[in-house]
């Protein structure tokens, strides 16, 4: 073992602009998180099996007991279960951030001459890719068990846009949770208390009109319901009301608040 070649590698810093290196470094952090999707077998299993299980569970076990009027339950369910899985999927971002903090790799990134916050951007971007894969699996299974969408090609583009916007927003919130929780155990209970009520006390699995008044007011006005109703309207032609633009405003609002908050927490974090 000889370290004879030592000191022979130079940084190529001067050969490119700052913008080049910003994009370069971001792409490395994103590449890292994307590799995690396929190298972490637990994640990969959760990503593929879980949506199928949920789809079948609600379609066949609970579906018969929930009255969705003239709309068949599987048609009603699709938008809700899609958004619910996006919200739960975002917890992967929290877990990834907390794991990186716990393992000390964020310390390592911070000691490098790079944009270390790119590590958060990487996890959020991986979430977008994961959710696209998950949505495709879910909708495919849905089609097999009786889902009949009426959406046109353009409406599918709009649905994709809303799903990605919502993923991006909730994934940044998840990144904040990861930074605050710091440990994997804390992420799990935080996720449970935040994501559970937001997705189940919504229009995801049952019409909000069937809920008790206090719960109904919450369920009808919270952002997850707006996102679900907007997607449902595009998918199966239910009345859209104010849901579409409220969904977009909520998502943009969450993004505007959560990115600087995550950045602040990331900079301030100093040590395990």
């Amino acid at each position: 073992m000889a370290l004879s070649n030592y000191h022979s590698y130079k940084s190529a810093d001067e050969h490119h602009s700052k913008l080049y290196w910003l994009v370069h470094d971001l792409s490395i952090f994103i590449g890292r998180s994307l590799k995690h999707i396929f190298k972490n077998t637990d994640q990969l299993l959760g990503l593929t099996i879980q949506p199928i299980m949920f789809m079948l569970l609600f379609r066949y076990v609970f579906g018969g007991a929930i009255n969705t009027g003239p709309i068949s339950y599987v048609n009603f369910l699709m938008a809700g279960i899609l958004v619910q899985s996006v919200a739960f999927g975002a917890l992967t971002t929290s877990l990834s951030v907390a794991t990186d903090l716990q393992r000390g790799i964020i310390e390592r990134f911070k000691s490098l001459p790079t944009i270390s916050w790119g590590v958060l951007m990487g996890h959020v971007t991986a979430d977008l890719v994961r959710n696209i894969i998950q949505a495709i699996i879910m909708i495919s299974v849905g089609l097999l068990v009786g889902f009949h969408p009426t959406a046109t090609l353009w409406q599918w583009v709009e649905i994709t846009g809303i799903v990605l916007l919502f993923t991006f927003a909730i994934s940044w919130v998840a990144a904040i949770m990861g930074l605050v929780a710091k440990t994997i155990e804390a992420v799990q209970w935080m996720g449970f208390f935040l994501v559970f009520p937001l997705t189940f006390a919504s229009a995801a699995f049952a019409p909000t009109s069937s809920m008790a008044s206090g719960l109904r007011i919450f369920a009808q006005n919270q952002p997850v319901t707006h996102v679900i109703e907007a997607i449902r309207a595009l998918m199966i032609g239910t009345p859209v009301g104010n849901h579409a633009w409220l969904a977009v405003i909520w998502c943009l609002g969450i993004i505007i608040v959560s990115i600087p908050t995550a950045g602040y927490l990331f900079r301030r974090y100093s040590g395990r």
Partner: peptide, 26 residues
């Protein structure tokens, strides 16, 4: 540092290349 700060889901080789690129080696 005191704790081995490596990316557990990347190979040793991938860890090294990633870090080299973050140091802006070509």
């Amino acid at each position: 540092g005191q704790y081995a700060a490596v990316d557990e889901y990347l190979s040793g080789y991938e860890n090294l290349v990633m870090l080299g690129r973050l140091y802006h080696l070509n």
